[in-house]
Design a protein around this nucleic acid. Structure first.
Lengths: 167, 167
DNA sequence: CTTGGAAAGTCAACAAGACTGACATATAAT
DNA sequence: ATTATATGTCAGTCTTGTTGACTTTCCAAG
């Protein structure tokens, strides 16, 4: 409730409860817009947002293992497995037994998987590009800065680990 | 980062597919962090994110009707009703028959509801405040600008309508 | 070499929370 | 009186999360 704390020289207007509340609502509405387009496409098939997320990260890091994907997505392996199973059955994802460790499964998108993933992320990129263009490069830099501070760094550890090892 | 600004007059580096992909992933990870704290609290009771959202907007716009809430939240009435019913049963939300139009129900938080809502949004504000403070006022301005461009303005129509009428 | 634990992945059953569709009730508007 | 609106409810489905139990595989200690 310390609204007028801008007496100490710095302008801290952006830290008032009202500003924070607006930021919270902006996150809610923006995230809904952010997922709306791919969701519309996915609704026409038997897939959901979870399938999109899995395909996104497989596309980005081909050959990733189920365990890596679990850490990145932050769900249980049983939950991911259901999604993965349908994607594999439908020929969008391929699962290859690991050469080094035969317990591991390395995941890749098939050409059909690449095609759907592109269709989905094109829709998402289109909206993101429009927002970026409208806001301008400086706003985009600020956007990224705040988002990065908002992430739960603990949950992200695996993501960075995995990429540095694998690339 | 911004190596080659303005070669054709404008710097469009921030619109490359790779930058957009990073923005998309940042949204995903940040939103997860954004909801993590209230989710942890909610998990200890019989409530979920849907209850939090309902209480947030009732708190912000006391006396709002069920229909207004439906438009803002973008869910079906059956879905909202399930949430609302439990909140009313548990004494967190009060539903008053409209004076002007007795078909309408006006929604308010009870003292208990206010208490829980505060506990939840305090957790969320805390993280948002930390992110804002770390990023600084200019980044925050950019953050808000991009988020506002990313919202689906069609879906938000009701929100603004309702607030201008009601305040 | 064997054996026992740990790790990776799969299967089954269940719950939350979204959805649709049909229907009921009360009230308002025409 | 009839029609439209606001809300609430029942039944059934879907996605996506959960826990628990299981198999296969690897590895390391005896």
């Amino acid at each position: 409730m310390e609204e007028s704390s801008s007496r100490s020289g710095e302008n801290l207007l952006f830290l008032t409860d009202e500003q924070l509340r607006k930021g919270i609502e902006a996150m809610f509405f923006a995230y809904r817009g952010f997922t709306a387009d791919p969701d519309r496409i996915l609704a026409t098939m038997a897939y959901g947002r979870a399938h999109h997320r899995a395909m996104h990260f497989i596309s980005h890091t081909p050959g990733t293992t189920v365990n890596n994907l679990l850490s990145i997505l932050g769900v249980t392996k049983q939950s991911l497995n259901r999604v993965l199973r349908t994607l594999i059955e439908d020929g969008l994802v391929e699962s290859k037994v690991g050469a080094r460790d035969r317990r591991e499964r390395h995941l890749f998108l098939t050409p059909e998987g690449v095609s759907l993933e592109q269709r989905l992320s094109d829709a998402q990129r289109k909206r993101m590009r429009a927002a970026y263009r409208k806001a301008g490069p400086e706003a985009v830099a600020g956007f990224r800065t705040v988002l990065e501070s908002m992430m739960d760094t603990n949950l992200l550890q695996h993501y960075h680990d995995e990429r540095s090892v694998r690339q």
